[in-house]
């Protein structure tokens, strides 16, 4: 019971972890390269969600400090870091997709297994 209460109180961490595992699994098991890239993005997004929720303070406001107002502010650092993380994820995705386009031009398929079959046939 205690475990369930803990999970419900921290549901955003829980959701992030589930997304992480979904992305990880998609990336490793699907043979379609586009699906692999989608899995990679799900995984990255889950980490971003996790990171941002670390900085969240319940009832907090955006950290634009007003003197003497006595508001509660959220931690801005994780959000700032994640901006960098998003940029990195976007560039990796763009690069991976451009490689897939080239690969499609060479093999006529986006499936890693089919590419392996084609290569094995040619080497024989």
């Amino acid at each position: 019971m205690e475990v369930i209460t803990k999970l419900l109180n921290n549901y955003y961490y829980f959701a992030a972890m589930i997304l992480f595992v979904i992305g990880f699994h998609t990336m490793l098991t699907h043979s379609n390269l586009i699906k692999k890239i989608i899995g990679m993005n799900i995984m990255d997004t889950s980490i971003f969600l996790f990171f941002v929720s670390i900085g969240y303070v319940r009832g907090g406001r955006a950290p634009i400090i007003q003197e003497g107002a006595g508001y509660l502010y959220v931690n801005p650092l994780p959000s700032a870091l994640i901006l960098t993380g998003i940029v990195v994820a976007v560039s990796v995705t763009a690069y991976a997709l451009s490689l897939i386009v080239k690969l499609y031009a060479h093999y006529g398929t986006m499936d890693a297994d089919e590419i392996a079959i084609i290569r094995a046939r040619e080497e024989r």
């Binding site: 992480f20 990336m27 890239i37 990679m40 990255d44 993380g85 990796v92 690069y95 490689l99």
Partner: peptide, 13 residues
């Protein structure tokens, strides 16, 4: 790239 993105994801987490 895919495997190394996997590694980067682990490192970031």
């Amino acid at each position: 790239l895919i495997l190394s993105a996997l590694g980067s994801g682990c490192i970031l987490l």
